[in-house]
């Protein structure tokens, strides 16, 4: 079977102008090898600055890799043509407050990818936007809201709506649950689990919430200083982390639970 997404010897070496965004000048990401199947959830965990977000950006094509390839359904993706993959692999960014434009209404913002990537009529677009708003737990009213009128968690839901609107095959999400409140977070987890079961959506997410990681993901990847140091089935990872950085993260999580 051809995996949905396969990542082959992917590396990234920052050039000079990237310097301020990475922890140290000798930072190198990868090489990373990884395959992801339809309907699979993969969690990426690791310390801050371990390269998690960078890996996510490389997968969606927001950053061009130094070397290596990514294939979707066996088709190698052109690293310079990010538009082609835009509707199949969607990114949900961490700081929704940074990634949402304050000057346009929420509805227009969610509609934008539809306008750019599909031939749908305005009526069909409106219908799709309203459906997606409800899907992520917002109200049809929110169509006419502006960013500043939403709380942080509501903004995060807008980001999820924007990611889902093109019916992608892969969603890559950087901290999708961090700003969500518990009841909506459970709904979002359930929503993603359902979407995965129904549509075979693959989900790659970065999270510090190890409770959710453990519940949702099939496999967990631990990153440290730009390297993937351990990949295992999630339940095995939590039962028996081997690499010191995996142990550190998982033990800290368990320590919080035993108060």
């Amino acid at each position: 079977m051809i995996p949905l997404l396969s990542i082959n010897q992917l590396t990234f070496k920052p050039t000079k102008k990237w310097e301020f965004m990475v922890p140290s000048t000798d930072f190198v990401l990868g090489p990373v090898d990884l395959t992801i199947n339809k309907g699979e959830s993969i969690a990426i965990i690791g310390q801050n600055d371990s390269g998690k977000s960078l890996l996510a950006k490389l997968i969606v094509g927001a950053v061009t890799p130094t070397s290596g390839q990514i294939s979707l359904n066996g088709q190698q993706l052109d690293p310079n043509n990010t538009k082609a993959r835009a509707s199949d692999i969607r990114m949900m960014f961490r700081q929704s407050s940074e990634s949402l434009n304050p000057g346009i209404s929420i509805g227009t913002m969610i509609e934008e990818p539809l306008r750019l990537n599909t031939q749908l009529s305005p009526e069909m677009r409106l219908e799709k936007v309203l459906k997606t708003l409800t899907l992520v737990g917002l109200m049809p009213d929110h169509y006419y809201f502006y960013k500043h009128m939403l709380s942080e968690g509501q903004q995060q839901r807008v980001a999820l709506a924007r990611a889902l609107i093109l019916d992608p095959q892969v969603i890559v999400a950087d901290e999708p649950f961090a700003a969500l409140d518990p009841s909506v977070r459970s709904q979002t987890v359930n929503l993603l689990l359902t979407l995965q079961a129904e549509l075979g959506l693959a989900f790659i997410f970065i999270s510090h919430n190890l409770g959710i990681v453990r519940h949702m993901s099939d496999r967990t990847i631990v990153m440290n200083e730009g390297q993937v140091v351990e990949v295992k089935d999630t339940q095995a990872m939590f039962a028996d982390p081997e690499h010191p950085s995996s142990q550190k993260l998982i033990n800290a999580h368990k320590a919080l639970l035993t108060y």
Binding site: M139, P182, R185, S186, T194, H215
Partner: peptide
């Protein structure tokens, strides 16, 4: 109920208990 870590017996990938709907505007 919404914190999976509080329910150690929860089966992975099972739906979480969640209240329907969302906070009204």
């Amino acid at each position: 109920d919404s914190a999976p870590s509080f329910s150690p017996d929860l089966i992975p990938k099972s739906p979480l208990v969640a209240m329907d709907g969302t906070i009204p505007t």
